[in-house]
Nucleic acid binder design. Structure first.
Lengths: 221, 221
DNA sequence: GATACTTAGTGTTCATATTACACTTAGTAT
DNA sequence: ATACTAAGTGTAATATGAACACTAAGTATC
């Protein structure tokens, strides 16, 4: 028992991940079906207990890797939730993270995992365990806000893309439509994009220039 | 020992407070001198361990009340710091909060406490314990950013004030000067202020209209 | 009681940024 | 050859933000 705690136990500390992607023009979030009680069989955000000698960021990275096999995605701390009743068994506080991953970067899940992993559209969520609905709503709010004053969508785009795909990404996240010419002007004016020189020849129409972000940095504008 | 922790101890959880005020045209932060090891005698942010059945917000409120005797100030969660080495004794993660209090609302500290409580100007800080310098810098960055797109200064102003006082508050926090006419136009345009009808007759000059915020709400613009 | 002093209070012009809006281009499919 | 689809482009109107200087209403002083 920790000497700083007299007469009560030190709270457990977990890290929970709100892992976003966009697919089929929907903003989606990864859910895992809980194998154990409490909330057995109920969908929840992927998470896990903080390990010894592990920073919060590392723990979030570890959880990400365990569930997806992927590393190196955009990630930021969201908020820490610590209501005494949020876990029915014992006191647990959780540090929530937002992570973004392009759909194209996701490996196909192994068949054994398929049943208890799910990408759920954020506007059609199942019942969630603990306070995960609240966490998720907070994450969506933050993501939507941040999209409009940063290039955070970088984390959701493939390496190369058409400007129309970038625009659709914005529209999907903020759930609103944007003017094509104004969108292009603003995006190119940020100076964060560069032409690749390649063109996307797919489809029965004029081919589009492919762009990429000049750097991995997320900047505010 | 928590059953979820196999072979290692659950980390301690503390709440630390970055309590801001403005006095003598300086942005100041409350520091307390540590009575115990580690960092005995070194200045630190006021904080304390999270208690059983206490939410994070309540813990922050409690710490505030313990150190100042004040409740009901503006407060928001800042960030959670969890580097494994941040406490030299044992694993402790801390949830940092920002709090704002008008200088006028502070009770005079009792003489016995004076020696180990200090309002330090943020641009002339002493050496700080733990990672508190990092926490404080992060808090200052957040406060400065938030000032420019919200009415968060509400938390630092007395009930009634002259527009010139409000302007000086902004200038002190962002450490830059503002144009008087543009400032007044913008402030009044937010619709968040109302004239009280009273005038401040102090001083050998034309008396100023006293204003107050219409509501306690912090809104973004 | 005239003059000096101090802060309050007020509008306009200019530059920049944002919005609204429609047609031509370049490819594929039939 | 024609139809179809998405790519790509510019301008005018409006709104926003920035720069800027004088008059007003008190008190203090002589």
């Amino acid at each position: 028992m920790n000497t700083k705690y007299q007469g009560f136990e030190s709270p457990g500390v977990t890290v929970d991940l709100v892992l976003f992607t966009v697919n089929e023009d929907r903003l989606k979030v990864m859910l895992v079906r809980r194998a154990e009680t409490p909330f057995q069989g109920i969908w929840s955000l992927p998470g896990g207990f903080l390990l010894e000698n592990e920073s919060l960021d590392s723990a979030a990275q570890r959880v990400l890797h365990e569930k997806t096999g992927v590393s190196e995605v955009y990630m930021e701390q969201l908020y820490t939730f610590g209501d005494p009743q949020r876990d029915p068994r014992s006191r647990v506080i959780t540090v929530a993270y937002i992570a973004l991953i392009p759909w194209q970067s996701l490996p196909q899940p192994e068949s054994e995992k398929i049943a208890d992993l799910n990408w759920s559209s954020v506007d059609a969520l199942p019942k969630l365990a603990f306070d995960h609905k609240q966490i998720l709503e907070y994450a969506v709010t933050r993501l939507r806000a941040k999209v409009s004053y940063s290039n955070i969508v970088y984390g959701l785009m493939p390496k190369q893309f058409r400007l129309s795909e970038l625009q659709r990404m914005y529209e999907t996240i903020i759930d609103d439509s944007l003017d094509k010419r104004n969108f292009r002007k603003r995006m190119l004016a940020t100076g964060l994009l560069k032409e690749t020189g390649k063109k996307d020849l797919a489809g029965a129409h004029r081919p589009a220039m492919l762009y990429q972000f000049k750097s991995k940095e997320i900047v505010f504008f």
